[in-house]
């Protein structure tokens, strides 16, 4: 790794079109990477994900990405941003689709949002993120972002739980610890707010 460059992990889980558009707009250079050995060549890694978290974890594990991500992030200080299911995979486990373990960067479990509080699922649309100190939110006065999901990380009051969102129940919407970042929302389709957050990840993290 000599210069700043970005890998988007390509494991055929969901739409990366919008993400590519956003990075193009920010003039961030990126490559789609499907070979787990290659991610150490990059300073920044994005782990996207849409659909079933269990299926996503299975694919990551089978392809060897789980081990290579751990190595790159925990031993080689590569910066990683997980988006939506990509963030959920950073937890200890998910109960979606019969259940699965996660990569385990955080001890939190990913659980289905509670419907009995009178909500509709999926949780879809822009919602607010409550943050205190967070590099990702540097310079952002508006903190509304686009969510579309039915499962989320449980709050445990960890100091890395950098963003909390309320949908008649609180869940972790942003994680941030040293070189590890995750957002439950989709910054790439969250208007200017999301572009600024993505820019922060590349320039300030």
């Amino acid at each position: 790794m000599t210069t700043s460059s970005t890998a988007i992990i390509d494991y055929k889980m969901g739409n990366i079109w919008s993400l590519k558009n956003a990075l193009d707009n920010l003039k961030i250079k990126y490559q789609l990477v499907s070979d787990p050995e290659k991610i150490n060549d990059f300073s920044h890694i994005i782990l996207p994900g849409v659909g079933s978290a269990r299926e996503a974890y299975n694919r990551l594990e089978k392809s060897g990405f789980v081990e290579s991500i751990k190595e790159a992030v925990l031993h080689k200080e590569r910066k990683i941003l997980g988006i939506c299911v990509g963030m959920q995979l950073m937890g200890a486990s998910t109960e979606e689709d019969g259940g699965s373990k996660g990569i385990g960067f955080f001890k939190n479990k990913v659980v289905k949002l509670k419907e009995n509080v009178g909500i509709k699922l999926p949780h879809v649309g822009f919602n607010n993120v409550q943050t205190n100190e967070s590099v990702l939110f540097d310079g952002l006065k508006q903190k509304d972002f686009y969510f579309v999901h039915s499962y989320a990380m449980e709050c445990t009051n960890g100091d890395y739980e950098a963003g909390i969102t309320d949908y008649k129940q609180k869940f972790v919407s942003v994680v941030e610890r040293e070189n590890i970042f995750g957002t439950q929302f989709h910054p790439e389709i969250s208007q200017k707010n999301g572009l600024i957050l993505l820019d922060n990840f590349f320039k300030k993290c």
Binding site: W17, S18, N21, A22, D24, N25, Y146, V148, H186, E188, I189, S190, Q191, K192, G194, L195
Partner: peptide, 9 residues
């Protein structure tokens, strides 16, 4: 249309 639009499509 969408390459410069940053909302869900």
């Amino acid at each position: 249309i969408t390459k410069n639009i940053f909302v869900p499509v």
